[in-house]
């Protein structure tokens, strides 16, 4: 048997195991080992997913969550790379500013939510601020780190070519720091999803977070599980998309090594 076939065989076996877990879940639900109020069977969760998508409810909730996540994450990426580049490319900023940022890093970012609510109220703007604030850290710190770790000889080359500071940033530092930056952006994606859900729960904004909370309050467990499954899919798909983008964007580096 060749290697390819073996890999597919393992894959299939692995799917079979997952399927048997779902079957077990169905069995537990059917036998009512756990109260159906908390645990719907996979059949009911699936039916709720189909119903939600066919009448458009879940589409609009999914779109809401993706929108919060995307705007916050994009804002964090742009601001994080820009600020990170400014701090990372200057020795003075690295000595005076970077330690303060490192000090703030272990702060649980969700603790900023009450402050944001006090400033902006229970609004869309509050959610975007919180998501962007939470997602900026990994990107900014990765950019600073990436800029600091650029091969010094590249800077020397840039100096001997008399490149301007902007040219150095765009032509030397950013490309060489891009693996770090992309890794930071991938981490931020997860943070953005989590904070989107939390903000939707708190502020009642249209999205999956609000949907699962309402379903829980009304004890509609099938809808609740449908929402949680959809959030899992969202997390999975965004992270796969990010890996693919990373692969694409870094292909030139892999070929250099």
């Amino acid at each position: 048997m060749n290697r390819h076939a073996t890999i597919w065989l393992w894959r299939a076996a692995s799917f079979a195991v997952a399927a048997s877990f779902i079957a077990l879940w169905q069995l537990i639900a059917n036998l009512k080992l756990v109260s159906p109020v908390f645990l719907p069977g996979p059949d009911r969760a699936w039916a709720s997913l189909v119903r939600g998508f066919s009448n458009g409810d879940l589409w609009s909730k999914l779109a809401g969550t993706l929108e919060h996540m995307a705007y916050g994450w994009l804002a964090a990426s742009i601001a994080g790379i820009a600020i990170g580049a400014i701090i990372g490319s200057s020795r003075i900023m690295r000595t005076y500013v970077a330690p303060s940022l490192e000090f703030l890093r272990p702060l649980p970012v969700s603790a900023i939510i009450p402050v944001a609510i006090a400033m902006l109220g229970l609004t869309q703007a509050m959610a975007l601020f919180v998501i962007a604030f939470g997602a900026i850290w990994p990107i900014m710190l990765a950019t600073i780190h990436g800029f600091a770790a650029v091969e010094p000889r590249l800077y020397e080359v840039a100096r001997s070519l008399q490149m301007s500071r902007l040219a150095v940033i765009f032509k030397v530092a950013l490309p060489s720091a891009s693996p770090d930056i992309l890794a930071g952006m991938r981490l931020s994606l997860t943070v953005a999803l989590i904070l989107s859900v939390v903000c939707e729960i708190l502020a009642g904004l249209d999205g999956l977070g609000h949907w699962v909370l309402l379903s829980a309050r009304a004890f509609r467990s099938a809808d609740l599980f449908a929402g949680v499954i959809l959030l899992g899919v969202t997390g999975y798909v965004t992270s796969v998309a990010m890996s693919m983008a990373e692969h694409r964007l870094l292909a030139w580096q892999a070929s250099q090594r």
């Binding site: 692995s14 195991v17 989590i194 977070g209 699962v212 829980a216 609740l224 949680v228 899919v233």
Partner: peptide, 26 residues
Amino acid sequence: NRLMEVTVEAIRPIPSIALLPIALIA
């Protein structure tokens, strides 16, 4: 490890906070 791969990769991406409503009613 290979047999559990799909199961693990299916559960892992669920944001922990999404479990909050389930934990709440249970």
